[in-house]
């Protein structure tokens, strides 16, 4: 595990609020979405919200015993605990139906090993990766000047022509290009940091290349835009479910 991840895990172990808040903000929607998919309609939004909290609670308990040398992926770590929490909830429901009590299941921590049976599907893996990149975009937005990021948003996320952006914002096209490059570099830097931060294995770190984020500027912008739009939909669906709760 790289030093950044080690530091982050150490912060989690130290019960650093901001670290947990970060984890919650970045991956909460993905976990909720996954629990919805697993529940197949039998689990309501309120229960999913509770289960997501339980997942983070279980995470916080598990983090003290987490052994990074056993080769688990970050995504698997999250997924295994979410699955454990959901399974526990289902057991509880069945026990109630049978009219019996139920002892809470202990967390099977075999997920720390590479060969653990939980196999995250492609949708889940993609969602986790997109959540990381989305976090990088957020971080870049925070670090960039407002005007610069607006240029990038209009040009890349909204697909407007450089000339139109220049007209709207009262600047020359070369200035637009300059701002664009500055924000792109900022995002690249944050992508590297965030992916490193939330990756336990080299395999996870290498996902950046396969997603097109290691390519040229155009390819990078296109990949970032796709991820931004896709993850926005995930978050919007999640927020809508929470609001309808």
């Amino acid at each position: 595990m790289n030093p950044m991840t080690t530091t982050f895990v150490a912060r989690l172990r130290d019960r650093d609020d901001t670290a947990w808040f970060e984890l919650w903000t970045v991956f909460g929607p993905v976990i909720r979405n996954q629990l919805f998919r697993w529940g197949r309609g039998s689990v309501g939004a309120a229960t999913v919200e509770d289960l997501t909290q339980d997942t983070l609670t279980a995470l916080s308990k598990s983090i003290d015993r987490f052994d990074p040398t056993r080769g688990a992926r970050f995504s698997t770590w999250l997924l295994a605990i979410a699955k454990h929490v959901l399974g526990d909830e289902m057991d509880r429901r069945h026990a109630i139906k049978r009219g019996r009590g139920r002892r809470p299941a202990s967390l099977d921590e075999a997920y720390m090993g590479v060969s653990y049976g939980v196999t995250p599907d492609e949708v889940y893996e993609r969602a986790i990766f997109q959540a990381k990149i989305y976090a990088a975009i957020r971080a870049a937005q925070k670090d960039s000047e407002f005007l610069h990021f607006e240029v990038y948003r209009m040009r890349v996320f909204e697909g407007r022509a450089g000339k139109e952006v220049a007209t709207q914002l009262g600047m020359s096209e070369p200035t637009v290009s300059r701002h664009l490059r500055r924000v792109r570099d900022c995002i690249r830097s944050h992508v590297e940091d965030v992916v490193t931060l939330y990756s336990f294995t080299d395999e996870e770190s290498a996902e950046v290349d396969s997603a097109g984020l290691a390519g040229g500027d155009d390819l990078f912008d296109e990949a970032i835009c796709d991820i931004y739009v896709a993850h926005s939909r995930v978050v919007e669906d999640d927020e809508r479910r929470l609001a309808e709760r």
Binding site: D14, R15, D16, D17, T18, W20, F21, W24, Q53, D54, L56, T57, L59, S60, K61
Partner: peptide
């Protein structure tokens, strides 16, 4: 459980 996990903002 959530509070026990220290997410509630007690620390720091």
């Amino acid at each position: 459980q959530l509070e026990d996990a220290g997410i509630g903002g007690l620390h720091g």
